[in-house]
Amino acid sequence: MVQPDVLSQPFELGFTYTRSTGPVVGRFLTGLRQRRIFGVRASDGRVIVPPAEYDPHTAAALDDFVEVGQEGEIVSWCWVAQPRAAHPMQRPFAWAMIRLDGADIPMIHCIAAASPDELATGARVRAVWADEPRGFITDIRCFELVGKAGASPAPATGEDAGELEPVDRIETPIYLHYHFTAGSAPARFLTRIKQGVLTGQRCPRCANVYIPPRGSCPACGVPTQEEVVLPDKATVQSFTVVAIPIPNNPIKPPFVVANLVLDGANISFIHLMSECENADVHIGQRVQAVWKPADEWTYAMDNIRYFKPIDEPDVPVDKIGKLPITGLEG
C-alpha cells in the first residue's frame, strides 16, 4: 500500500449575504445612518437597544421605539490582547456590554482603549461614528471612554432625516477560513492519481469496488482497506447536458456531465465528456480518460481533463457497473 501524503489545504467559505431587515432592525439601522441610536420599549417597560423585534418574555411584537443617548456605562467587558483577523479592530481592544443612557438593556460593542487599565465596569463611554454611516452596525465604529483624548466630533443628529430612504436591506459579507483535510482513504486515492493511477477500494464484506474511495463501504458500514488499481476506461451510466455555468468553474456550457463507471468498479462518479457531439452521448457508451500532461498532475480528479468516446460496443444496461477490470471483452 502506498503511504499517502497528508493532504490539507486552506479554503475560504464565503458569501456576501443580502439581508432584508424588516421594520424593526431597519428602523435601528436607518437611525444609525443619521448618527442616532434607537431602542424599543419591551412589554415590561424596559428599553432594549438595539431594538428587539420580539419581547423575550412575552413573545409580543415590539414597535414602541425610543431614542437613547450616545453615551452610557460599561456593564461588563473583556480585553482582547490579540485581536483575531475577523475582529473590527486589529490593535488590542475591549468588547463590552454597554448600557446607553435611556436604555435598560446593555448592548454589545467594542471599545477603543490604550490598555485594559483604562477600563472599568461603570466607566462612561460614548459612541464613535464612522465617517460615512451607511446603515450598518459598524456605523458605530466603536465606543471610547468619555474624557479620554482623541475625542470624536460631536455627533450630528437627525440632519438627514427624511432625505434618505429607510434602510431595509443590508449586505453582510461572511467569509470564513478553514483547513480542509482530505481524509485517509481519499488521500491515498489522490496520492496515486497524482501519479496517473486510478485506485479504488474493495469492501471486505460485499467485494464491491468503490472509486473514489471514502474509507468505508456505505452499504455494509465497514472500513475498506484493500486497494484495487483500475484502468481508465469507463461506461456511461447516465448523463446530463448542462446549459448553465457552474459557480466557480470556468467550463463553458453546454457541456456533458456524465455518471461514469470505470471497468472493475461498482460505483459511478461524475466527470466531463468531450470530443463528441453532445447529441450522440448515450447510456452504455464506452469512454476513456483524456489526461492532462503528466507535468500538470496534482492531487485531483481534474488530472483527467475529460472522458472521450472510444470505438467499443455499447455495454448492455444490466452490465453497467458490473464489468471486470478487463472490460466488456474480458
Partner: peptide, 17 residues
C-alpha cells in the same frame, strides 16, 4: 445576524464578559 454577527464577537469574548 444584524446586530452582532457582523461585529464578529467571538465565543471566548462573550464568556469572558
Amino acid at each position: 445576524p444584524y446586530y452582532l454577527a457582523p461585529l464578529w464577537v467571538d465565543s471566548v469574548s462573550l464568556a469572558a464578559m
